[in-house]
Simulated scan of single mutants.
Amino acid sequence: MTFEAPSVIAEPLPYEAKLASRLLGDIDLVVIHCTELPDLAMAREYGERALYDSGTGNSGHYYIDRDGSVHRYVAEDRVAHHVRGYNPRSVGIELVNTGRYPHWLAAGHQAMDEPYTEAQIASLIELLRQLSAALPNLRFIAGHEDLDTTQVPASDDETVSVQRKLDPGPLFPWARVLNEVALKRLLP
């Protein structure tokens, strides 16, 4: 059983059926990401890449483009690979945003200065409300940066450490989103 809002465009990844299945009652967390890629087409290309022996790759469940359109790549009853340690209990939502692209881990390129569009945030809030109504145990929300705080050597200077994941980043409107939905921010 999967959740299908009328405004969601279902575009399953080729390997969706190979992802582990789960009960909707197992989901209690939504993780907000940004793609850190220039556009939805490139995010789709990255999502389609098979990276594991199972024939699956890394992807969120939902992608929200700058125009507010919502695309579902993985159904909620499947475990998508989007955040270390939290995948079995969470739904991943990716917002199209350049983030640190293309020098994700360069010490001198850690600013995330592309604002999210009004259409993206409005669609995100509506999707979160719909997910809350459809998933009986959904209680928490977190940013990828909240859950993966791993430090790695910078790609341009191995003597400097940078945080591996910074999304959704400093321009994400946490106060607004938390005010609009009945989810509590999960901070480890």
Rank of each mutant, 00 (worst) to 15 (best):
M1L: 11
T2Q: 13
A5H: 11
S7G: 14
V8H: 13
I9R: 12
I9D: 12
P12N: 05
L13P: 09
P14F: 14
P14H: 15
Y15R: 04
E16H: 09
E16G: 02
A17T: 14
A20M: 08
S21A: 15
S21E: 14
L23E: 15
G25C: 10
D28E: 14
L29E: 10
L29R: 10
L29V: 12
V31D: 02
I32D: 01
H33C: 03
L37H: 02
L37Y: 03
D39Q: 09
L40T: 12
L40K: 08
L40V: 14
L40P: 04
A41Y: 10
M42L: 14
M42K: 11
R44C: 11
E45T: 14
E48T: 15
R49G: 00
A50D: 06
A50N: 06
L51N: 07
Y52E: 10
G55N: 08
G55E: 05
T56W: 06
N58L: 13
S59I: 05
Y62F: 11
Y62T: 00
D65R: 12
D65H: 11
D65Y: 05
R66D: 00
D67Y: 07
S69R: 15
V70H: 06
H71M: 14
H71G: 07
H71K: 13
R72Y: 05
Y73H: 13
E76G: 13
D77Y: 12
D77A: 10
H82Q: 03
V83R: 03
V83T: 11
V83G: 00
Y86S: 06
N87E: 15
N87P: 08
G92L: 01
I93E: 01
E94V: 03
E94I: 02
E94C: 06
L95V: 02
V96F: 05
N97C: 11
G99D: 04
R100L: 02
Y101Q: 09
P102H: 12
H103Y: 12
W104R: 09
A107I: 10
Q110N: 12
D113I: 08
E114P: 02
Y116G: 04
T117I: 02
E118P: 00
A119H: 06
I121G: 03
A122C: 07
L124I: 05
I125F: 04
L127G: 06
L128S: 02
R129S: 09
Q130K: 01
L131H: 05
L131Q: 12
R139W: 02
F140G: 01
I141Q: 01
I141P: 01
A142K: 04
H144N: 12
H144E: 13
E145V: 08
D146L: 02
D146F: 01
L147Y: 04
T149C: 10
V152L: 05
V152T: 08
V152F: 04
P153L: 07
A154I: 06
A154W: 03
D157C: 07
D157P: 09
V160E: 06
S161M: 14
V162A: 08
Q163Y: 10
R164T: 13
P168K: 00
G169M: 08
P170V: 02
F172L: 00
F172S: 00
W174D: 03
W174T: 03
W174H: 05
A175N: 14
A175F: 06
V177E: 07
N179W: 01
N179R: 10
E180L: 06
V181Y: 06
A182S: 14
R185W: 03
L186S: 09
L187A: 13
L187H: 14
L187P: 06
P188K: 13
